[in-house]
């Protein structure tokens, strides 16, 4: 009986399991083809091709050093000066990993929020207006309006609306991280990449951040790297499991957490390693 079950499990478990998306309501907005990332001679990512559905939250999980952050940072070419990235990154039909792509224009569409809240040493208002001013938006009225909507979307407006001219460095960690989200969405990107945005936050702030992300899904496609599996399970539609530079499994979040196809995924999500 025992042995039989094990054999059955082993047979059911594939080595890799990566689905192709086919949801007409949420077409693929971003995908990678044959993506490889090298740090010097070391290959940090080699089998990591994924598709991301628009206006959904996709989570990238996996143990430390599995390549998930490397993958995420390659998506908006933040790895350009650190690593060599080969292969295609298709964004709405355009390969944005070509040398001829204007990365600055591209990053306006594919924004990023980092692990550590990193507001500038400027006022809350100026933090959000920063990228807008760089793009020539200078009208006070227009700026006011965008600052307000961005802060509202990031669920921070009610807490800071009277302190817009105070330094952003005075905010708590959770507030600062939501300010960074507000700052990123002020330029209305298409896609928002988040690199472990809650790892420096306490549970309450994490909960608020997750609520914010769920409400942002309506306007943005969100790809989030997280160490916290419960977080991935709570907020994402799709989950990719990275291990040792490869995507071992990519499927709907419920599939990954309830009925994973790959043994290693199963071990990881049930807490056997990582």
């Amino acid at each position: 009986m025992f042995v039989n079950n094990d054999v059955k499990n082993a047979m059911a478990m594939e080595e890799r399991h990566v689905i192709k998306l086919s949801d007409p309501d949420h077409p693929v907005i971003l995908s990678t083809e044959d993506l490889h990332v090298y740090y010097g001679k070391k290959e940090a990512l080699f089998e990591g091709d994924l598709e991301f559905a628009s206006n959904q939250i996709s989570a990238l999980i996996g143990p430390s050093g599995s390549g998930k952050s490397t993958y995420l940072r390659s998506l908006n070419r933040m790895n350009d000066r650190i690593a060599t990235v080969t292969g295609k990154i298709m964004y709405r039909g355009v390969d944005i990993n070509q040398p001829s792509i204007d990365v600055y224009e591209m990053r306006r569409r594919v924004g990023m929020v980092f692990q550590r809240p990193n507001p500038f040493a400027k006022s809350i208002y100026d933090n959000i207006a920063f990228a807008l001013r760089l793009r020539g938006v200078t009208g006070k009225h227009k700026l006011d309006e965008i600052v307000e909507t961005s802060l509202k979307q990031a669920a921070l407006w009610d807490q800071v609306k009277d302190d817009l001219n105070k330094s952003a460095l005075a905010l708590s960690g959770g507030q600062a991280q939501r300010l960074c989200i507000a700052r990123a969405i002020a330029i209305k990107p298409d896609i928002l990449l988040l690199d472990e945005p809650a790892s420096a936050l306490d549970p309450v702030s994490t909960g608020q951040l997750e609520d914010t992300l769920l409400s942002l899904k309506e306007h943005y496609t969100i790809i989030i790297v997280t160490h916290n599996m419960q977080q991935a399970a709570r907020i994402s539609e799709y989950t990719a499991f990275f291990n040792q530079g490869r995507v071992l499994e990519y499927d709907t979040t419920s599939h990954i957490f309830t009925n994973p196809s790959v043994q290693v995924t199963s071990d990881y999500v049930s807490g056997n390693f990582g």
């Binding site: 908006n76 980092f114 500038f120 990228a131 990123a184």
Partner: peptide
Amino acid sequence: EASLALGAT
């Protein structure tokens, strides 16, 4: 990084 990720040159 924050500045570059916001599309600043």
